[in-house]
Amino acid sequence: MSDQDGSAPASPPTPAPAPIRVLLADDQPLVRAALRMVVADLPDLEVVGEAGTGDEAVRLTEQLAPDVVVMDIRMPGLNGIEATERISAGTGAAHVLVLTTFDDDDYVYGALRAGAAGFLVKDMALDDILTAVRVVAAGDALIAPSVTRRLIKEFAGRPASTSPGRPLTAITEREREVLVLVGSGLSNAEIAERLFISVATAKTYLTRLLSKLDARDRVQLVIIAYEAGLVSPCR
Rank of each mutant, 00 (worst) to 15 (best):
residue 177 E to L: 02
residue 57 A to S: 07
residue 70 V to N: 05
residue 51 A to W: 11
residue 233 P to I: 06
residue 134 R to M: 04
residue 198 S to D: 07
residue 97 L to N: 05
residue 21 R to C: 06
residue 234 C to D: 08
residue 1 M to D: 10
residue 100 T to Y: 04
residue 152 I to Y: 03
residue 14 T to I: 13
residue 126 L to G: 05
residue 83 A to I: 10
residue 187 S to T: 15
residue 235 R to D: 14
residue 142 L to D: 03
residue 27 D to P: 02
residue 198 S to I: 06
residue 181 L to A: 13
residue 8 A to E: 15
residue 197 I to D: 00
residue 119 F to G: 00
residue 129 I to G: 03
residue 39 V to L: 03
residue 212 K to C: 00
residue 166 R to H: 04
residue 224 I to Y: 06
residue 112 L to Y: 01
residue 124 M to L: 10
residue 109 Y to F: 12
residue 205 Y to S: 01
residue 227 E to M: 08
residue 133 V to L: 14
residue 144 A to I: 15
residue 21 R to D: 06
residue 205 Y to R: 03
residue 200 A to Y: 05
residue 142 L to E: 09
residue 178 V to R: 02
residue 15 P to F: 09
residue 48 V to T: 10
residue 37 M to E: 14
residue 63 Q to E: 15
residue 166 R to D: 01
residue 219 V to G: 14
residue 151 L to E: 00
residue 206 L to D: 02
residue 155 F to I: 04
residue 193 E to P: 01
residue 141 A to H: 02
residue 60 L to P: 08
residue 141 A to W: 00
residue 66 P to K: 14
residue 99 L to Y: 06
residue 184 S to Q: 15
residue 204 T to I: 10
residue 36 R to D: 13
residue 173 E to H: 08
residue 235 R to N: 14
residue 33 A to P: 02
residue 210 L to V: 03
residue 115 G to R: 12
residue 156 A to Q: 10
residue 90 G to S: 15
residue 64 L to W: 11
residue 148 T to G: 05
residue 175 E to D: 05
residue 24 L to Q: 00
residue 54 G to T: 08
residue 128 D to T: 14
residue 202 A to C: 09
residue 48 V to G: 01
residue 227 E to S: 11
residue 174 R to Q: 12
residue 138 A to T: 02
residue 219 V to F: 07
residue 204 T to L: 12
residue 56 E to A: 15
residue 166 R to T: 12
residue 207 T to R: 13
residue 158 R to H: 04
residue 9 P to I: 08
residue 73 I to Q: 03
residue 136 V to H: 06
residue 83 A to M: 10
residue 138 A to M: 04
residue 159 P to G: 11
residue 66 P to N: 14
residue 89 A to R: 13
residue 131 T to Y: 07
residue 204 T to A: 14
residue 8 A to F: 14
residue 57 A to K: 07
residue 107 Y to E: 04
residue 51 A to E: 08
residue 173 E to L: 11
residue 125 A to Q: 15
residue 30 L to P: 01
residue 153 K to G: 12
residue 121 V to R: 01
residue 200 A to N: 14
residue 105 D to N: 13
residue 118 G to S: 07
residue 27 D to Q: 03
residue 160 A to R: 15
residue 43 P to C: 01
residue 71 M to W: 05
residue 161 S to I: 03
residue 76 P to Q: 11
residue 1 M to R: 12
residue 98 V to A: 13
residue 179 L to N: 11
residue 136 V to K: 08
residue 6 G to A: 04
residue 83 A to L: 11
residue 206 L to Y: 11
residue 199 V to Q: 12
residue 115 G to A: 13
residue 158 R to V: 02
residue 68 V to Y: 04
residue 108 V to F: 00
residue 83 A to Q: 12
residue 31 V to S: 11
residue 172 T to Q: 01
residue 19 P to R: 11
residue 31 V to T: 15
residue 85 E to S: 09
residue 195 L to V: 07
residue 102 F to G: 06
residue 79 N to K: 10
residue 162 T to V: 09
residue 124 M to T: 08
residue 135 V to E: 08
residue 128 D to R: 15
residue 164 P to E: 10
residue 18 A to N: 05
residue 62 E to M: 08
residue 206 L to E: 04
residue 84 T to D: 07
residue 23 L to R: 09
residue 199 V to K: 14
residue 212 K to I: 00
residue 208 R to H: 13
